[in-house]
């Protein structure tokens, strides 16, 4: 009855997809971002400003992340409060600063996320086209811009109204707008492609996610 896990998954998917664009978005008519190979991972830092409608100041957090087409995403918030969110084929798991795990969502359907990310990284927008209308453009600074708008009747329409991602070699900014007027602005920096294996501190988190 209550698709709470589904809802969380949907939101997570969007977050993942926007994050996944950090090294992606190849299209014929716009500059191509770097592609993450299956033996690679993308690492970098983020700053997220969460703007809540009616509140003057955003909730700002920062930290680092790693994204692997085969392993999943580790989103590690360092400030103002340490905490980690893991999205992989086991589901969505939160880990607090004391190591306590809170499994938000679990199921094989989340395996789709990683597969979806891989498709995006390969410049294959088809998986997204099922749920989003996709507009592509270039900015004045020759950066590419992708605007994702949920299709009418899409399952995600009630949670996300628009996603805008821009970047050059990687995705550098993501704006995630919600129907209630809230939005998240995510700035990604210091990104680089590295070869697997993941650094031990991230690899250990992923290993424990399924436990």
């Amino acid at each position: 009855m209550i698709p709470i896990r589904r809802l969380i998954a949907s939101v997570a998917t969007v977050a993942l997809l926007t994050s996944s664009m950090t090294g992606t978005a190849r299209a014929d008519d716009i500059p191509a971002p770097a592609t993450i190979g299956t033996e690679q991972y993308l690492g970098g830092s983020f700053t997220m400003d969460r703007h809540l409608d009616g509140f003057d100041k955003p909730l700002t957090s920062n930290g680092d992340f790693v994204l692997s087409p085969t392993k999943g995403l580790v989103w590690r918030t360092l400030a103002p409060f340490p905490g980690t969110t893991i999205l992989d084929d086991h589901g969505i798991t939160r880990i607090d600063d004391q190591g306590n795990r809170d499994e938000l969502a679990r199921g094989d359907q989340f395996r789709q996320f990683v597969e979806l990310i891989s498709a995006v990284l390969a410049g294959n927008w088809q998986p997204l086209e099922q749920h989003f209308d996709i507009a592509r453009d270039t900015t004045e600074s020759n950066a590419w811009q992708v605007i994702l708008t949920p299709k009418d009747g899409s399952t995600i329409q009630n949670q996300i109204s628009k996603i805008t991602a821009t970047g050059t070699d990687f995705v550098e900014n993501v704006r995630l707008e919600k129907p209630a007027g809230d939005h998240d602005a995510i700035a990604l920096s210091g990104q680089s492609l590295q070869s697997l294996p993941l650094p031990p501190e991230f690899a250990n988190l992923l290993t424990g996610a399924g436990q």
């Binding site: 969380i8 939101v11 977050a15 969460r50 009616g54 969110t85 969505i92 939160r94 209630a180 809230d182």
Partner: peptide, 10 residues
């Protein structure tokens, strides 16, 4: 409050 996967809203 700071999670990328959240149902948080104003």
């Amino acid at each position: 409050l700071y999670s990328p996967a959240t149902t948080l809203s104003s």
